[in-house]
Nucleic acid binder design. Sequence first.
DNA 1: GAGTCTTAGTTCACGACTTGGAGGAAGGGG
DNA 2: CCCCTTCCTCCAAGTCGTGAACTAAGACTC
Lengths: 394, 394
Amino acid sequence: MEVRRTTVRDMRRSNRSVILTSIYREGPLSRQELTVRTSLSAASVSNLVAELITEGVVEEAGSVESEGGRPRVLLRVAPTFRYVVGAEVGETRVRVELFDLAMNVLARADHPISSPTPEEVVKHVLEGLSTVVAASGVRSGQILGLGVAVSGVVEDNAVVDAQTLGWDAVPLAAMLAEGTDIPVHVDNGANMLGQAEMWFGAGRGATEAVVALVGSGVGSALVAGGSSYRGARSSAGEWGHMTIVYGGRQCRCGALGCLEAYVGAEGVLDRYREAGGLVDGDEEAAFVGLLASDSEPAATIVADTIGYLAAGFANLVNLVNPERIVLGGWAGLLLGEKYLDELRAEVGKHALRRPYAQVSLVLCELGRDAVALGAATLPVVHLLRNGGAVPASR
Amino acid sequence: MEVRRTTVRDMRRSNRSVILTSIYREGPLSRQELTVRTSLSAASVSNLVAELITEGVVEEAGSVESEGGRPRVLLRVAPTFRYVVGAEVGETRVRVELFDLAMNVLARADHPISSPTPEEVVKHVLEGLSTVVAASGVRSGQILGLGVAVSGVVEDNAVVDAQTLGWDAVPLAAMLAEGTDIPVHVDNGANMLGQAEMWFGAGRGATEAVVALVGSGVGSALVAGGSSYRGARSSAGEWGHMTIVYGGRQCRCGALGCLEAYVGAEGVLDRYREAGGLVDGDEEAAFVGLLASDSEPAATIVADTIGYLAAGFANLVNLVNPERIVLGGWAGLLLGEKYLDELRAEVGKHALRRPYAQVSLVLCELGRDAVALGAATLPVVHLLRNGGAVPASR
DNA sequence: GAGTCTTAGTTCACGACTTGGAGGAAGGGG
DNA sequence: CCCCTTCCTCCAAGTCGTGAACTAAGACTC
């Protein structure tokens, strides 16, 4: 129950946002189609669109024949109106990518990092930013914002606690802002990958969904009402540390029986090793080996993993009743590519009939490099929400 | 990312709603306080309040001295502007209560029911409605709406699937609407109890919360952003059938290892019985007996129950990061009254440090009779959302 | 190739809205 | 009785979406 006043200005902004969002999300549209979709009057659509065109946010893009009369003029968000930058901060590298508003990659920069201290990361992100700006030839005033994805809990768009990086209350947004004039947004990596899948991948069209990521660790992004759910203090979605075997295996979080300890790649390989399986090479190679093996212990471990993972999904299905679950993460994809049907069937054994019948389980479509893409959508979300108004500064 | 146009009429309605909601939820307020809270201009507050007073929704309620100048006139929602009715449909009885807008009970009617067929329930709800209307002397045109709480999944405010009642796709709202002119709202019982706790009980002030109900079965109401989260098709919150012991005890839902099979009163007593405990009397008496017993098996069972329940809470804490968990349900209250501290400590063992530090675990304050109260808030929510505009009909 | 039909988009007067500022109302203090 | 402070209301100004009338732009007809 939100309580916010509305002024006549808010109305204008809101309607600009409605129009701009429709054009952006639902491809080129004519004014006439906009009046239908938004239920605004033709007069208002015309008026608002004219304003957006004057400002350069929207442009005409050919026309399409109508049903016998004057052709409809198609409108799209001008891809080169502004540009956005997305950065992915991993444990071993920083990747920075620059996109136009149609989310075409115009430039990319990767930096390996040795020790992921905040200072190091800030330095590499800023260097990457300079690199992609220079490489793309985009003037920095044309850049709408920099979205940064970090694997940790991000509160208030700014402060990061990341156990894997050893960070505690790092004011990353503020640190980055010291080195650039471009507006900075920071968010959690899993949420950003989820965001990318929801906008451009397997989540398109869904409003209630879960993007489940299974890699070495296990996490998820919850999507409620079309946008990511953050909980009270931004740490919602910690699906990997859900207790699934009470009193079971020790998890690296310290608790017993977490889902991650059973279906995270590390946990799976540990179980395989204990069952007498042969684990060699790096984690990913070993995981592939496990899936390829037709030995008896391998089959058991894989079957068990599917069972545990299905129970984890079922818990999501029961608790949040999503319309779609999108499985991703490198281990999740490897498993899913081979055993998606088994997984679906197994979820049915653990979930309640009704919500199970309403959910579809699908695989991520974008691959694991979409994190920077997701991060780059942060400034775009901002733009759409503001109805295309860009900060007056600079 | 919602897309809805805004007109100048919406603006008015929205601002009326903001003012009315503030007055309703934050007690008597003066116009001056309203300008501060809503950030509307004094002129608009005055204008809107005048309108609300003319219509009778709001009334002046004394004045309070200001800081040296003209005293502030307090405003409140007129308790007798309209009335609301809440109904609780249980397996063995139907309870109907009539409230004024201040949620004082003016009349109550209970009907035992033998076989909870839809027809029977509809009949008893309508009879209860007549009874409370007659007993209270309220004209039926003054009744804003009838909220009905059913223990089952309620889609679109209307259609009910309830396994415990043996109902499948029962159009309860439509059936009730045939027997009365009063607008009917139907929702899930757990959500309604949660709603009551959020507005008038242990949930006040929280916006991200979970109301966990432990009785013979186990369920919950998820609250996100101040209102109940329903998921894709209204069945969110099925916390009881979360797998918590993979491959564990058989649950009545058919799956293995559900939380309900361990912490639902029925499951607890089954475990007690298997451990050699003495279970007699009805379920509730037996449960009280278990808690009162100082035998060795009883102590073990209770300790285990606390452990399982804590793991269930921890899963909620990790996944949805609530600021508050409110424990209710008759068994939950019995357990909580005696072992709340142990429960809190145990949750810490299963949950991640960060979200655990952000959540508070408290007991329900309203008792189990608050379901009808919660149901009666449905029409009130409607009224507040519409800014006090009542349907013109009748 | 002029006229006509159909659909798309635009212009404009109108009513509804919020707002800032001026002014009135209501109490206390000298 | 006057002045001060604070709360509240009235009014002119500015903004916005809307419906109706109007223009634009193709296709179709004869």
